[in-house]
Design a protein around this nucleic acid. Structure first.
Lengths: 343, 343
DNA sequence: CAGTGAATTTAAAACGTTGCAACTTCTCTG
DNA sequence: CAGAGAAGTTGCAACGTTTTAAATTCACTG
């Protein structure tokens, strides 16, 4: 019933053969002409181009892929369990943006819950499901990075590793973020800094911690990074934790929020305790969307441009797929500091 | 340099031929055995299955696609300009969830900015870029729906149309949402209701308006739906508009927010005017994530489960791709009313 | 024991593309 | 004017799969 074979529309699907017949040339010639092969006479090239356009010829992806082994597909490993607000959206936007017009399309490879992260990567490589891989939540000695590097398979990670062999990555300078946040809090006269970190196994947790500790030491401030909660903890639990912590006698007077959800959780805890930013304590948050313009009370924010990160990843991956050496393939995004309240 | 031909790993890639050689059977037999074709003796089937597993055989997508014309790809039309918070993430999650294990993968087909929405759909159909299409922002006489129905191409829309010919869709009952919201506001003693609608051209704008108007009429309340702003308006502009409108002498005393961003904008405007929900006016918002649990002050919400919507779309599309008639292929999600503050 | 038909298996032909090796032309050199 | 060589074009063979049509085997009937 669904088996039409020839798709509706009546007319024959345009292939190299139909174009060849129309021009009286051989299939090979047509193929080459369309590939702008210099061996084909310029005149012939134009003739072919014309005929192809007239027929609305579009090369068949499946056939190309079968023949060449290239898929023209970028596989995006998506962790869909919890999210840093808007993360998926912006990263996706930037990524597809960068790939626009290159012939590559983005396919989602969902992290099956609780499955080993390596399985996904291995499946993609072994079954040639794509020409390149994009992933995030990178770990210091991420096995995916090791494997893909060994295989010589193009990829780009969001986040760095601690491998000595270079590999393509795009990252946000979280250390600088932490430093800037602490500096801001110090400027406001705060001295007991609390920061909720990502799960310890992610590389950027280390960067944040390092920035926090270094900046606090330099200034003689104290710091704390609660073990009980992380950025992966459900936001309501984070809020509950903070409600308790901020009510304690030795409560911190400065909080750094590394995500929008965490920031909102923090604000909610403060509201419940009738604490106000600028009064009993101050807050600096990482901002990835326009939402902070709307939150009341307002807090200081440092911007992380995820759309741009996505674009950088797309561009980096393209270069990696073109065989460029990994040495130069990194982008470190600088925090955009733009504190609203005037110093 | 990248042209290895045979992928690293040394061993030959497993194909039907290698399995055939290993078992001493013909390629055809192997193909059939793996497809569980009853014509093949059960004993042979097992033999083949065993050999295939031993070699780690996985069918080549490109070859299957070339041969059968089926891509095993679902194309997702994503509008990436602005977003209802978390929309992309949850919908994507549900969709990939539903497609898990079916052999289908989800590919993003980004709406090229300002390009005719039809182009995307036509490209996909004409170039066989997928076996099915998923899209949102459906319009009452959406040309994509008309075209795909005509072509007999499987799809599912998020949102209904007003065509008489049935087609597969998944939608949230926005009329019921509007009614519930108004009922709630009326219960709280409010009588002048304001609701910011989506852009007029989307079907769900009509549903919302209808629900609003009907519910207000039934109860003798007044209503307003500002022309100047919509859900597509940048949130800061919405906030600015509301700051002005809520300060006016004839200000509404009940606001219905059809999205989380709109709700936050509304709360921000109220905070700026020192208005408090429950005092000068009340707010009911549509909730799609856990974020409202953290916002202060709290407001009444009605839940729209976007993850579930994504799953429903996936399941519906699967059935549509299996050739099932469109008559039964709809899912109307009921609003989950769960007002926190006790009546 | 020839003949029938069911039960299995198989060879060969596609699907649309690209790469290799060859084949024409044609122009130019010696 | 033979021959070399460039310039342009072509046929054929894959890539790995499914499908059509045909072949083989086998048990059983008459």
């Amino acid at each position: 019933m669904e088996e039409t074979g020839t798709r509706s529309g009546g007319r024959q699907r345009a292939t190299l053969r139909t174009v060849a017949q129309a021009t009286g040339l051989a299939i090979t010639t047509v193929s080459r002409a369309l590939a702008k092969d210099p061996r084909i006479a310029a005149q012939t090239r134009e003739l072919v181009a014309e005929a192809a356009r007239a027929q609305g010829y579009v090369p068949d992806r499946a056939a190309q892929r079968l023949r060449t082994g290239r898929t023209k597909v970028v596989q995006l490993l998506l962790s869909l369990d919890h999210e840093f607000l808007g993360f998926t959206h912006d990263l996706l936007g930037g990524l597809t943006d960068a790939l626009q017009g290159t012939g590559y399309s983005v396919t989602l490879f969902p992290d099956v819950m609780h499955a080993d992260r390596m399985t996904a990567v291995r499946t993609i490589v072994e079954n040639r499901l794509g020409d390149g891989i994009v992933f995030n939540r990178t770990e210091p000695f991420d096995p995916r990075v090791r494997y893909l590097t060994e295989q010589g398979f193009p990829f780009v990670s969001h986040g760095r590793t601690e491998f000595t062999t270079p590999h393509p990555w795009v990252d946000y300078d979280n250390e600088a973020f932490a430093r800037a946040a602490v500096a801001r809090l110090a400027y406001k006269g705060r001295s007991r800094i609390l920061m909720i970190l990502p799960q310890d196994r992610f590389t950027f947790a280390q960067h944040l911690r390092y920035g926090l500790v270094a900046a606090c030491r330099e200034r003689g401030l104290t710091w704390e990074t609660p073990e009980a909660v992380s950025l992966s903890t459900p936001a309501t639990e984070v809020a509950a934790f903070l409600r308790q912590r901020l009510a304690a006698p030795d409560a911190p007077d400065g909080v750094v929020c590394v995500g929008e959800v965490a920031a909102i959780a923090c604000l909610s805890a403060m509201a419940d305790l009738h604490l106000h930013p600028g009064r009993q304590l101050d807050v600096v948050a990482k901002r990835a969307s326009a939402i902070f313009d709307l939150l009341r009370p307002t807090v200081d924010t440092v911007f992380e441009d995820l759309w741009e990160a996505g674009r950088a990843m797309g561009r980096t991956l393209l270069r990696s797929m073109q065989g460029e050496a990994a040495d130069a393939l990194h982008v470190l995004q600088a925090p955009k500091i733009e504190f609203k309240t005037h110093p």
